[in-house]
Design a protein around this nucleic acid. Structure first.
Lengths: 319, 319
DNA sequence: CCATCTTATGCTCAAGGAGAGTATAAATGG
DNA sequence: CCATTTATACTCTCCTTGAGCATAAGATGG
């Protein structure tokens, strides 16, 4: 299994033994706000050592989350595996491998006695919420800072390239906003030393970009999770994992918008959902509504068996 | 970093220390045949211990592959991380974490003195090549075996569900073939004990499904890589990593078809490539051709800087 | 030189999907 | 009754996509 393929194999690494951690990005949506489970006062994602008593990483994660929140995880997907050169910066400390997961669940209060709670994910990425138009911090703070960073490059060519990258990833200079580039944006800010987590490493002054920092690379992991989820909702019906058993189409739409960070065209959204036969009417109507009452729907779990679901793109507005 | 979030934290796992391995799915395409780098006479993917002397997993993989083949890796992407309960089935052996990567490269002979060489990936998955229509083994061997497996379920409902799954993933009963379901198909065959690697575990008789087996779960990892690549070529211009510097549009098309395992509509393929401005003419013409000589093109690396490339879907034929 | 074969390349057409807007219905609170 | 709010039904147009026709430019065999 662990064959060394090379004849010229390099010497086996001393201290090849490492520790394995799980890091979870657990997402729920409540009232149009996407939330993630956090610990340590919102400064870290839940994480812990992997227990090899489980059959697989997935089951380990499920068991762990259920023990913590008392509720089962609907959808689970592996995100990324990071290798650290050793914890706490000590090159000689034990090496660690962090395996991160994305998990979708219905919002539920964390059981009593637990340190964890839910935090809005836009607290960590204020520039990612475009539901009410481009956030002010983008034009007022981020764009100027990025422009300054681009100008600081050594040659005019490099300056242009830097700015082009910024404009593309952040939708500047009249370019379209691409909501899926969450990770690229975070990494660009990091590169420009505008992120506290990076600032320390670079020995820079206090950063000016808004957004709550997190321990170590947890905010990067969160960015990875958000990006993955934003991409996924377009071709897999995973939003339903975040919904209650019955919901109106507007509630469903608001959840999608919350995740995507942008608005969708209402009529087209309904058309899309209905023509894909993803939902069915329950017969009941929503109760506490303001305007005309809406029909209640439920997810048709059968579709998952009927076809290899491929569709579910969402009709984003261009404006 | 490795905080334990729970107050009710379970006891730290004894023997939390593990070993970390890299497993690589290295892909190249030659003359319309997709190939992967293998070792041990084609029965295993290249793999080895992760060296923590590198900055990241990616750089570790790159260095390792270059040392082995003498050629740089163009595109690298993490695939999946598996945790084994311990090697060689011993529950008490050292636990191991396998981190798998997908890497794209131009075909090149492996340097002398190396054990590795290139194997066609359809040797391992004969049922995945639909370029000349559905392979004979599908209708003659796989479908009947799956039908038998479905019939063996305990209740009529279960039998129907099983068969429905089979029909969807394998495109039976007049359903469309979905080339991206490589992993699902492999896992279904595994579940039905039609895969040698699984047969042992289930204590079944010799399997009848064609396809060369591999060590441990390497064939599953390969399936993961193929699936990922087949999905990726539709929205990212990664095919070019597999092409020589200059190529004709037909050569490009053949490479895409080789990966996707199905044919595309020639004229529409050209339209797609050209309208996305992914290539530019070199001015030269192909030399050794049979029919009318074709223009040579090169990949426009500039597009990667110009826009967040989103398109590159491929126009599959429905027939 | 011509017929034929092979691949390259240009162009048209029709159906379906996606973005956007109009119009009407059904509730609530003055 | 009216304004307001949300729900729901259609329509329209543009673009994409699958598919096919037609022509061009080479090679080869007679």
């Amino acid at each position: 299994m662990a064959r060394s393929p090379q004849k010229k194999s390099s010497a086996p690494v001393s201290g090849n033994a490492v520790t394995a951690d799980l890091v979870a990005v657990l997402v729920a949506v409540t009232d149009g706000t996407p939330k993630i489970m956090t610990i340590a006062g919102g400064s870290a994602l839940p994480s812990g050592p992997f227990e090899f008593t489980h059959r697989s990483l997935q089951t380990a994660l499920r068991a762990w989350v259920e023990a913590q929140t008392g509720h089962p995880l609907g959808y689970v997907e592996q995100l990324y595996t990071f290798a650290d050169r050793g914890r706490s910066g000590d090159a000689k400390g034990p090496h660690s491998v962090s395996i991160s997961y994305l998990g979708l669940t219905r919002e539920d209060k964390v059981g009593e006695g637990f340190e964890a709670h839910w935090s809005g994910w836009y607290d960590y990425f204020p520039w990612e919420d475009h539901r009410a138009g481009a956030p002010a911090c983008l034009a007022k703070i981020i764009a100027p800072q990025l422009k300054a960073w681009a100008k600081a490059a050594s040659s005019p060519t490099l300056q242009r390239e830097r700015w082009q990258r910024c404009a593309i990833t952040f939708g500047l200079d009249d370019r379209d906003w691409n909501e899926e580039l969450v990770l690229q944006r975070y990494e660009l800010l990091w590169e420009a030393s505008l992120i506290p987590e990076a600032g320390r490493a670079h020995g820079r002054e206090a950063p000016v970009v808004p957004g709550k920092p997190m321990t170590a690379d947890h905010r990067r992991i969160l960015a990875t999770g958000i990006a993955r989820l934003r991409a996924k909702i377009k071709y897999r019906p995973v939003v339903f994992e975040l919904m209650p058993a019955e919901f109106t189409l507007l509630q469903l739409q608001r959840s999608v918008e919350a995740l995507a960070g942008r608005l969708v065209h209402k009529q087209n959204f309904r058309r899309l959902i209905e023509q894909q036969e993803l939902v069915e009417e329950t017969g009941a109507m929503a109760a506490d509504t303001v305007g005309r009452p809406a029909k209640l729907f439920r997810f048709r779990h059968a579709v998952l068996a009927e076809r290899a679901v491929a569709g579910t793109k969402l009709p984003l507005s261009r404006t």
